[in-house]
Amino acid sequence: MDEKEGGRERTGYATYALVWLGLMGLTWLSVTVSGLESGALRIAAPLAIASIKAVFVLAVFMHLRSERGLVRWVILIGLIAFLVSGALVFSDVAYR
């Protein structure tokens, strides 16, 4: 499915298709879990599923699994920005 090209792994179309199907499946799971009357799980489970989906997208579709060095570190900026923004939003929501 995947080939080596110039020392880097090249993702094959079959991998893309499989991951895409996996993402669709996780989306279905996310919608289903949100509809369940299960208290805190209604929020926590879709967030966890969304995080798993994000890892797949970053690793496969954005080719991070075949990148190294600076490009991998750069993704940290996005993650830090996300965490800080989230924390500041919750400083409002949690204390309202």
Binding site: A81, V84, L88, S91, D92, Y95, R96
Partner: peptide, 22 residues
């Protein structure tokens, strides 16, 4: 500058804690 956005929302109904932080 990316951490100050809440100062646009002091009277929007956001929390006092958030107001102090922003």
């Amino acid at each position: 500058g990316s951490l100050v956005w809440g100062h646009h929302m002091f009277v929007s109904g956001s929390s006092y804690t958030a107001g102090v932080i922003f």
